[in-house]
């Protein structure tokens, strides 16, 4: 469904990700892991069209979307729950969902809201509250729910568990598995390798903008020492550089 071919992206003169090959299929969860600054968020943002593509191609269902505007990518079925969540903080939960579904016609809004509330019943209790007043876990639910409003086939989720209480993380991963069961593809970024290996089907490890390890989640669990070393090495170089 999603296919990155030697994708490079970055910021002006600065390269964040170098020649990354990656595939995400329907009904599959792929986890991107890596140290701080490895290029995980940049990868998601480039797929969503927010970070400048500097080489290679992004294919979605075989179509080259490399130069499509962010909104066109949403319309074609790619939705993003970004780093830091970036909710519309003064808007209520309901209103955040309304904006999330803006590319779909208003008639489908009510049905899509039902879907989100069925996935996250807790949001029904917070429905008219400003999103900025919610707990971190609830905000993550809104971010995922808002992305779902556009009826995506591919979900990009950054920092699934960062800063959340363990119970909330379970709720979020429960929802992500439910989405997979419905045939969505999910590309997620996860700080906790333990969580990533438990939830994902496949794992890709980034270090300094390059893919340095990839395999199934089962293989990742078997090689966790190697992968932790990559993350650790990444950290050490980052520390040395700073």
């Amino acid at each position: 469904m999603l296919r990155l071919e030697a994708m490079s992206c970055g910021y002006g003169g600065m390269r964040a990700v170098e020649a990354l090959d990656l595939e995400v299929g329907a009904g599959e969860i792929v986890a991107l892991v890596g140290a701080n600054g490895a290029g995980k968020s940049s990868t998601l943002m480039a797929i969503a069209g927010h970070v400048e593509l500097q080489g290679g191609r992004i294919l979605f269902d075989g179509d080259d979307i490399s130069s499509a505007a962010p909104m066109a990518r949403v319309a074609s079925g790619i939705a993003l729950a970004p780093e830091g969540r970036r909710l519309f903080r003064d808007l209520s939960v309901r209103e955040n969902l309304v904006v999330g579904g803006y590319v779909r016609d208003a008639g489908r809004q009510a049905r899509n809201i039902e879907t989100v509330l069925a996935l996250f019943p807790r949001l029904a209790e917070r429905f008219e509250r400003p999103a900025g007043t919610l707990s971190g876990g609830e905000q993550q639910m809104v971010a995922i729910g808002r992305a779902l409003m556009s009826e995506p086939r591919l979900m990009l989720i950054d920092e699934v568990s960062l800063g959340l209480m363990p119970k909330m993380v379970d709720v979020c991963y429960g929802a992500i598995r439910a989405l997979r069961a419905r045939g969505l593809g999910v590309l997620l970024v996860e700080q906790s390798t333990e969580r990533a290996f438990a939830a994902a089907d496949r794992v890709c490890v980034l270090e300094s903008g390059r893919a340095v390890w990839r395999g199934s989640a089962a293989e990742a669990r078997g090689n966790s020492a190697v992968i932790d070393a990559y993350l650790g090495v990444g950290r050490a170089t980052a520390d040395a550089a700073s």
Binding site: G49, M71, R86
Partner: peptide
């Protein structure tokens, strides 16, 4: 109204609002 909500979303985070199709 839907447009009113989109308007307030734009005030809150223009880039995000635009990416959702506003």
């Amino acid at each position: 109204t839907r447009f009113g909500v989109a308007w307030r979303a734009t005030v809150s985070d223009p880039a995000m609002a635009r990416s959702f199709g506003v």
